[in-house]
């Protein structure tokens, strides 16, 4: 949890963060999508919401954009309350939604132009800006194409370029690389990294560990609308996992029996349907002990701990199920 100075009574208009949430809550009837979360995002920071589908990540994003009213708590974006000043808040934001919603009825360049017009931007500003954004998104030679002629990765880049047309101070990215092939993901990460270097604050939701590790300075792990942990990727791994992990497989029916024999090995174990994870400072040493106990795994792998392990430890569940 972040440490907060207790000055909540006199409604501060601006704290150190570009986005500040205190006890942020969203309920739909009996269902609580976001359950009183606190966080603060510093200017220029790249901040992640990591959690499985349905954890309340997108709901939080929508509340920040002022397109979903909160049920309770406080929320402050660039010194403004999104519930009351939606259009003003959105003028500062770039939004990259989970699913591309480009305008398929108009051309690539026109998508950027019209979107700028929605913000009331003038043609004289937009013309050079669009050239710059097409170049940034590596779509200059596609400017005159129809949107449906673009590949998935290109559409995603166009969506990001579109979100930058109003020079936003904060970029909201909801699952930015879901559904993209590995090459397209790396191109996209590179583009986002450049934005970060230019000082844009990034708010990223993701259920991909590698994405969180690539993009986020700091993140909160959310599950069932609550914050389970907060920190940088390396801090989280240090605090909630061991340095290395040994993965052993004994075949679907043999895992449970093998787990009996492996009791007490390593600092902690997770028995999954298809494999057993043994958390230990030294994975190779742990593997030697497995063999010493007379077990011969079908397959074994020693790797570094990742955020996936952090999540597994915190929630007892795997992220992608």
């Amino acid at each position: 949890m972040p440490h907060i100075t207790p000055s909540l009574t006199s409604a501060p208009t601006r704290t150190g963060g570009v986005v500040t949430a205190r006890g942020l809550t969203k309920r739909y009837g009996d269902f609580t999508a976001v359950d009183g979360i606190d966080f603060e995002v510093a200017p220029g920071e790249s901040f992640g919401f990591l959690g499985p589908n349905g954890a309340g990540k997108s709901t939080t994003m929508s509340m920040i954009g002022g397109v979903l009213t909160r049920t309770g708590g406080e929320l402050n974006v660039m010194g403004l309350d999104p519930d009351r000043e939606g259009p003003r808040v959105r003028a500062h934001l770039g939004v990259v939604p989970q699913q591309d919603n480009l305008d398929e009825e108009i051309k690539v360049r026109d998508n950027l132009y019209v979107y700028g017009r929605y913000f009331g931007l003038k043609r004289a500003y937009l013309k050079p800006k669009i050239d710059e954004l097409l170049d940034f998104a590596q779509l200059t030679d596609k400017a005159g194409e129809r949107v449906d002629a673009l590949s998935g990765g290109m559409k995603r880049r166009l969506t990001i370029a579109r979100s930058l047309v109003n020079d936003p101070q904060i970029l909201l990215l909801d699952e930015p690389t879901t559904g993209l092939d590995p090459q397209a993901r790396h191109i996209l990460w590179d583009r986002l990294f450049r934005l970060k270097e230019q000082g844009t604050t990034l708010l990223v939701t993701t259920h991909f560990m590698d994405e969180a590790e690539q993009l986020c300075d700091r993140l909160i792990v959310v599950d069932h609308g609550r914050i389970m942990a907060e920190g940088s990727p390396s801090e989280l791994i240090r605090d909630y996992s061991t340095r290395e992990v040994l993965e052993v497989r004994f075949g679907s029916d043999a895992n449970a029996a093998a787990a009996q024999t492996l009791k007490g090995l390593g600092e902690r174990q997770e028995i999954l349907a298809d494999r057993i994870l043994i958390y230990a400072g030294d994975g190779e040493a742990a593997l030697a002990q497995v063999l010493a106990r007379g077990l011969t795994p079908v397959a074994s792998l020693v790797r570094r701990s990742s955020l996936e392990d952090v999540f597994l430890h915190l929630t007892g569940r795997s992220l992608v199920d």
Binding site: R84, E85, G86, P87, R88, A91, H92, D103, E105, I106, K107, D110, V114, R117, Y118, F119, G120, L121, R146, N166, D167
Partner: peptide, 29 residues
């Protein structure tokens, strides 16, 4: 960029022409 605070600010952004412009572009295509 930032629109000033005003009554009905959440309902009306005084920018009908942008919507029409988009529609015209779509019609042309």
């Amino acid at each position: 960029l930032v629109p000033e605070s005003r009554p009905f600010g959440a309902l009306y952004g005084r920018n009908i022409t942008a919507v029409m412009q988009r529609s015209w572009m779509a019609t042309k295509n």
